[in-house]
Amino acid sequence: MKAVGVTEFGGPEVLRVLELPIPAAGPSEIRIRVHAAAVNPIDTLVRQGIAFVSDAEPPYVPGMEAAGVVDQVGEGVDTDLEVGDRAMAIAVISGTHGAYAEYLVVPAESVVRAPVGLTDVEAAALPMTGLTARMALDLLDLPAGATIAVTGAAGAVGGFVVQLAKANGFRVIADAAAKDEQTVKDLGGDVVLPRGEEFVELVLREVPGGVDGLVDTAGIAEFVSRAVRDGGRVASSVKGVQVPSDRGIVSRNTFVPQYAREHGKLDGLRQLAEEGRITPRVARTLPADQAAEAHRLREAGGIPGRVVLTF
């Protein structure tokens, strides 16, 4: 099969088109013929040798979310999926086991039907990104009616956070650059405020005493936590971000591999997508052999959605 991966770590130029054996679905696994794979920030860290590098020998194949068709169902799989069904999956990268490949084998719990009405390219931008947003809100563990702030709301994860928060019955105060203000409003932001140093003070004007929770997808939780009430909660999708604990604020980081087998939560995203309550956003589509360019675009930033590779 054709795959895209690295045999040495470095910049986007180290990504290569590789010929690898087609993996077989083992017990409790499903193999997908991949039609599209989204490019995520974690993929660039895999390429650099920073994240998810196993003890296996190279090549290392990035990619944590994909869509295509079920190609093989392993023994002992309890599923209603059959060969030929459209599907989407989250993949935990291990050696050559990443989504930038024509065939991907994952645990059966990591696969659900692709949402009706979405293309393979759109569906590929949902599993890992959507589960990251889902996990962030789960970590907040707030009741319906709570008010939360969302940073990076125009981004791929932040946009899902806004939409899922509204589906959960939260009031959402989000940040946005001027060019993204209408986009964030369309996603469901109740109050959309300018990004930057004034965001905290503007939030506190809207909610004296502070919001109940914060989902930080921009890596600025330490700063923005000043807008969270005493005893509130913070969830960050950016690793290593901490907030001062002197006001009793509980801070947690997402680690989406912990949700890789949360079949019910992944299928819940499918249902919400079919209902039009969450919408994957695709900024660019490129053929798989242009993965290096996809990584350059990803690292340049400012892209309102995912870059997706097609196979």
Rank of each mutant, 00 (worst) to 15 (best):
L193S: 08
L193T: 08
L193G: 00
L193R: 00
P194V: 10
P194S: 11
R195A: 13
R195V: 15
R195Q: 14
R195I: 13
G196T: 08
E197H: 15
E197F: 12
E197L: 14
E198W: 05
F199N: 07
F199L: 14
F199V: 03
F199G: 09
V200N: 02
E201W: 11
E201N: 15
V203P: 01
V203E: 00
V203W: 00
L204A: 01
L204P: 00
L204N: 12
L204Q: 13
L204F: 09
L204D: 09
R205L: 13
E206L: 09
E206Q: 15
V207C: 06
V207Y: 10
P208C: 08
P208W: 10
P208H: 07
P208K: 10
P208E: 07
P208R: 04
P208I: 07
G209Y: 05
G209F: 10
G209P: 08
G209E: 02
G210V: 11
G210D: 05
G210E: 03
G210H: 00
V211Y: 00
V211H: 00
V211F: 03
D212I: 00
D212V: 07
D212T: 08
D212G: 06
D212W: 07
G213S: 10
L214A: 07
L214N: 02
V215K: 05
V215A: 05
V215F: 02
V215P: 00
V215N: 03
D216H: 11
D216L: 10
D216E: 04
D216C: 05
T217I: 06
T217E: 04
A218R: 06
A218G: 08
G219I: 02
G219W: 04
G219E: 04
G219C: 03
G219A: 08
G219S: 01
I220G: 11
I220K: 11
I220T: 14
A221I: 03
A221T: 04
A221V: 01
A221Y: 09
A221M: 08
E222S: 14
E222T: 13
E222I: 01
E222F: 02
F223N: 00
V224M: 01
V224Q: 10
V224D: 04
S225W: 01
R226L: 12
R226I: 02
R226W: 00
A227W: 09
V228P: 11
V228I: 02
V228C: 02
V228S: 03
R229V: 10
D230I: 09
D230N: 14
D230V: 13
D230C: 09
D230K: 14
G231M: 10
G231R: 07
G231I: 11
G232S: 11
G232V: 08
R233Q: 04
R233L: 07
R233P: 09
V234S: 01
V234C: 05
V234A: 00
V234M: 01
S237G: 06
S237A: 15
S237M: 01
S237C: 13
V238W: 03
V238R: 01
K239N: 13
K239T: 13
V241Q: 15
V241L: 11
Q242R: 14
Q242N: 14
Q242M: 14
Q242V: 13
V243T: 12
V243F: 04
V243I: 14
V243M: 03
P244Y: 07
P244V: 10
S245R: 14
D246L: 14
D246V: 12
D246F: 15
D246P: 06
G248N: 10
G248S: 11
G248Q: 12
I249F: 05
I249W: 05
I249M: 03
V250K: 12
V250F: 12
V250A: 13
